[in-house]
Design a protein around this nucleic acid. Structure first.
Ligand code: MN
Ligand code: MN
Ligand code: ZN
Ligand code: ZN
Lengths: 136, 136
DNA sequence: TACAAGTTTGTAATAATTACATTATACTAT
DNA sequence: ATAGTATAATGTAATTATTACAAACTTGTA
């Protein structure tokens, strides 16, 4: 989703578009590398020195609740955030640590064992080595 | 993998089967509910009061390195461990919090975007509500 | 203006995880 | 059996992520 759309989306839901929220949203839109709270905080703090980490936590929590941001748990001890909430899988390169997006049709996953389950949320992630790192 | 098999597997790899390691392995074998470090620690401590949490961490790290145990990151802030390293997906019920295993053929997932990637590890987890909780 | 709701901050409390130094144990070679 | 080496286990302290909570600030509205 594009930034402008996101803004509208927030307004539709009566979520106050405060300066800090705007900045965090803008950051997520420009940095689609699945940043951690700490990366978000450290980077934005350069522009807004008074920003508190708690505000980043609060804002992200809000955005996740509203399904405008998605949480990614690949590694223990590092929670990442993705503004791309469209259906896609993640690939983490174990060499350069980059997290790549890839297309995946999640409904196409056969899951006979879950006939009587109500599924809200599907996550897929792979680990391995990316083409760039393989080439070396 | 059954307990006896696991023991042999460790011996094959020249990994010392110390008392604590045995107990942790045994626990994982009997409690296939994807326990956290804390659950493992708290439960085994009842039998072995001198057990330290660090030992649980160390042992699990070893077992994961040897691919005898698999790490599960579904929720941020709770790392879980699974002695079942065979290919399977996880379903977490958001009501009762239980993590269910389900069969899945991971190679069957179409991933055209990853042609030049070397994939080691595939994880799939869903979230939703389990049949038991739906019935209520 | 005054109230209510929503924001942001800051500090402190928890909790998970790691680092590191020390002791204990097991295994080998003499 | 002894000495030497590698591995294992413990405990303490340090880091780090996350949450709780109270206080100050903003904004919109009656
Ligand atoms: Mn993504
Ligand atoms: Mn499992
Ligand atoms: Zn790479
Ligand atoms: Zn349930």
């Amino acid at each position: 989703m594009k930034f402008e759309k996101l803004k509208k989306e927030l307004m539709n839901r009566n979520i106050n578009l405060s300066y800090h929220r705007m900045k965090i949203l803008e950051y997520l839109d420009k940095n689609r590398c699945h940043p951690t709270v700490d990366q978000i905080f450290t980077d934005i703090q350069k522009t807004i020195p008074t920003l508190s980490k708690t505000t980043v936590y609060n804002t992200l929590k809000k955005l996740v609740e509203e399904d405008l941001v998605r949480v990614i748990n690949i590694e223990d001890n590092e929670t990442r955030y993705d503004i791309n909430t469209e259906e896609h899988g993640h690939f983490k390169c174990e060499t350069c640590k980059t997290i790549f997006d890839f297309e995946i049709k999640l409904e196409s996953i056969p899951n006979d064992g879950l006939d009587n389950f109500k599924v809200f949320d599907r996550h897929v992630y792979f680990k391995g080595i990316c083409p760039g790192c393989l080439r070396v």
